[in-house]
């Protein structure tokens, strides 16, 4: 029977490096994925994600509810992304490398493998969804990703982002309406 996460967090709080590594292994892809989606650039996302875990390590002793680790970690990730956005940037990095079909993000890399038409359609859909998410204003983008991609409840998101639950619901609703509008073409086909 696997050890409950709360117990692992407690061990990590007591300075058990292996326990912290277990938490890191569990959350590194989701946290990286979230940051990557929010900032676009994979290298920058890797730096920020690493910083998220560094902050988590330093802040772990102050975490009062080890059972709430996941929400707390995403709170750090969301704050790190916000800090990044607040800091002056020479240029905005686009998720798709300036909207072109070549270069840039992973979705712009053409799939050269021969395959059925369905694969191509799926790739187009992924690109369309990526762009639709990218078009959302950051406030809606973060809640929609945390809820629909990372599975955080409205309550958890509210706590993580320091918002009222009503605000989270409202942003989720608006994000959903935006996505529907941006993905209208795909909605007809799906």
């Amino acid at each position: 029977m696997p050890e409950p996460e709360e117990a692992i967090v407690r061990r990590a709080q007591d300075g058990d490096r292996e326990a912290f590594r277990t938490l890191f292994e569990r959350y590194r892809d989701p946290v990286f994925g979230y940051v990557r989606r929010m900032v676009g650039d994979p290298e920058l996302a890797a730096d920020l994600a690493q910083d998220v875990f560094l902050r988590a390590y330093q802040g772990l002793p102050r975490l009062k509810a080890p059972g709430a680790f996941r929400g707390w970690l995403y709170q750090i990730a969301a704050n790190r992304v916000r800090d990044h956005w607040k800091s002056p940037r020479p240029e905005m990095l686009s998720l798709e490398g300036g909207g072109g079909e070549e270069g840039g993000g992973e979705l712009a890399v053409a799939d050269t493998r021969p395959g059925p038409e369905r694969v191509a359609v799926r790739e187009h859909l992924r690109l369309a969804v990526s762009r639709a998410v990218e078009k959302l204003v950051p406030e809606r983008q973060e809640v929609v990703l945390l809820h629909h991609l990372h599975g955080l409840e409205v309550r958890e998101i509210a706590r993580a982002l320091g918002l009222a639950e009503g605000t989270v619901k409202s942003r989720l609703g608006r994000a959903r309406a935006d996505l529907r509008r941006h993905l209208a073409d795909w909605m007809e086909e799906s």
């Binding site: 629909h148 991609l149 529907r180």
Partner: peptide, 17 residues
């Protein structure tokens, strides 16, 4: 339709760290 829009988010690629 609204539900389908957010369901499409699962099409987003997951990139490993």
């Amino acid at each position: 339709g609204l539900r389908r829009a957010t369901a499409l988010l699962t099409a987003l690629p997951t990139e490993p760290a």
